[in-house]
């Protein structure tokens, strides 16, 4: 029994430290928050604003599902952006428009809440004419937003 456990731990350690693993480890950026959905929603919106972005809309996915007769827990999508950045990018690089404004999904799981988004660095390979700094800044800002959401009271 103990041998199996040790073997599994070694296997997991090797997985976590392998180069292949790292290369696609962050297609999605996700965090489980040990707070209820309403608290996390307030903190997320506050964190987005504190990071310098404006919330353009909150899509209530769960409401649409419930109205259509499906049972679901709370599920929202928060759209956000910076007006100048969205305006400039969308004019210079129209193909990026499909990914704007940026968004973070938030959904309840029992008494906890999960927030997630796609890693903006994944877009870099598709939009080589957009300066790298844009995607790395988005990545940094998302991590700041997630950390703030997790730590705000």
């Amino acid at each position: 029994m103990r041998t199996t456990k040790v073997t599994m731990n070694i296997f997991l350690f090797l997985l976590l430290t392998s180069t292949a693993f790292t290369s696609f480890a962050e297609d999605l950026i996700m965090m489980r928050i040990k707070q209820t959905f309403p608290e996390t929603m307030v903190n997320l919106q506050s964190a987005i604003k504190q990071t310098g972005y404006k919330i353009s809309r909150v899509q209530r996915v769960d409401i649409g599902l419930t109205k259509s007769g499906f049972k679901t827990d709370k599920y929202r999508v928060v759209f956000y952006g910076k007006a100048d950045e969205v305006n400039q990018l969308s004019i210079k690089h129209p193909d990026i428009i499909s990914f704007l404004p940026l968004k973070i999904s938030i959904f309840a799981e029992n008494n906890e809440t999960i927030i997630l988004t796609t890693n903006p660095m994944q877009l870099k390979r598709f939009f080589k004419d957009i300066p790298d700094g844009t995607f790395s800044r988005w990545y940094k800002d998302i991590n700041t937003i997630f950390d703030l959401t997790n730590t705000l009271d």
Binding site: G64, L65, T72, V77, S105
Partner: peptide, 21 residues
């Protein structure tokens, strides 16, 4: 949106909701 389609996708993996609507 097609809520039937959405419900099916969310049942497979709730994280897929970030690509919706």
């Amino acid at each position: 949106c097609n809520f039937n389609f959405l419900n099916k996708a969310l049942a497979i993996d709730p994280r897929v909701g970030m690509f919706l609507p």
